[in-house]
Simulated scan of single mutants.
Amino acid sequence: MEWLSIVAVVVVGLMVGVELSVAFVMNPIFGRLPQEAGIAARSDGARMLGSVMPFWYIGSTLLVVGTALAGPAAAGPAWIAVALLLLSVVMSVTLLVPINNRSKVWTPETVPADWRVQKSRWDRLHLVRLALIVAAFVLVTVAATR
């Protein structure tokens, strides 16, 4: 079952990389675009990633559960990683997804007056979620090396 922990590390690691890119590359680029283009880019990103990330988060969590069940030596760090990933899923569903669902239909003509406030709230919450999944990634990596 060693392959399972390797797959878990790769899948969680790639997810962390995508989310790091969103936080520190894509959203800052979108913020520097002219307002109409930035709104359109963020809306498109919300639609695209909003359709993929739920499967990635749940799949990552299930792989880490498998890692925890497969090896008793890895169980401690792996279960903590599972808890962090589950917390990130709950946080996503309750706090980030509602904002994302609103923003994915924004156009320059229909963007609400408070769109900057919503965007900033999403960005701050995303950084908290990112910290959770980075910690989970470290722990699943530790678990995989045991």
Rank of each mutant, 00 (worst) to 15 (best):
R102L: 14
L125G: 02
A74M: 07
N27M: 02
W106H: 14
G38C: 04
S120V: 03
L127A: 01
N101G: 00
Q118C: 03
A74W: 09
M15P: 02
E2M: 11
R47W: 10
A40I: 02
V142T: 08
S51V: 06
A78R: 06
V11C: 03
P108F: 12
P72R: 00
V142M: 07
M91L: 04
R47G: 06
L127Y: 01
T145K: 05
D44I: 08
L130M: 08
L62T: 02
L125Q: 00
A73V: 05
L69D: 11
I133Q: 12
A8C: 02
V82C: 07
I39M: 03
W115E: 01
G45L: 09
A37V: 15
A143V: 07
V111D: 04
G31P: 09
V64Y: 02
S88L: 06
V52P: 00
A143K: 07
L85Y: 01
G66K: 14
L132C: 01
L139A: 01
A83N: 05
S5P: 05
I6F: 12
V65T: 08
L96K: 03
V142I: 11
A78N: 07
F30T: 06
G31R: 11
V97G: 07
V65E: 05
G76P: 01
M48G: 10
F137C: 14
N100W: 01
L96H: 01
A136N: 12
R129I: 03
A37M: 15
L20Y: 13
L130Q: 11
T110P: 05
S88P: 00
L87A: 15
A144G: 15
V10L: 14
T110H: 04
G59Q: 07
G45H: 09
L62M: 05
V18F: 10
T107M: 05
V128N: 02
E2F: 12
A23G: 14
D123Y: 10
P112A: 09
P108E: 08
V16D: 08
G66I: 13
N100T: 03
Y57M: 14
W79F: 11
A131N: 13
I99N: 04
V89K: 00
Q35H: 09
A143P: 05
N101W: 02
P112E: 08
V138E: 10
V64T: 13
V90M: 12
L132K: 01
L130H: 12
T61C: 11
S103M: 15
L127V: 03
L84Y: 07
E36R: 15
T145P: 02
L62Q: 00
H126V: 00
F137Y: 13
L20I: 15
L95V: 02
E36T: 12
G13S: 13
T141M: 06
A68N: 14
A68Q: 14
I29R: 09
Y57E: 10
G50M: 01
L85T: 09
S60V: 05
L127W: 02
A83H: 08
V105G: 10
S60F: 07
P77H: 14
V128M: 09
I39P: 03
V82A: 04
W106C: 03
V140E: 01
S92W: 00
S60E: 07
L49P: 03
L96F: 06
A23L: 12
